[in-house]
Amino acid sequence: MTIDEWLQNALRDADRRELPALRPLLENLAKSTNALRAADWNLDLSGKSPNTPPTHVH
């Protein structure tokens, strides 16, 4: 699901629940989730991403 799709679904749900104060929080959350998904440490199983940082193995 893209973040745009997620946001539209979430905003519709916030309206259905009559929680308008949730809208700006969800819009800010969408920005944060975009940043999370854009981070270069996300997995790319195509193998095309060149510089995935090493991780600590638990």
Binding site: D13, T33, T55
Partner: peptide
């Protein structure tokens, strides 16, 4: 409650980094 499971898992990877 709106955060997707796949984004929570992404965050766990960020934590490892």
């Amino acid at each position: 409650r709106y955060i997707l499971g796949e984004d929570y898992v992404r965050a766990l990877r960020g934590r490892d980094v």
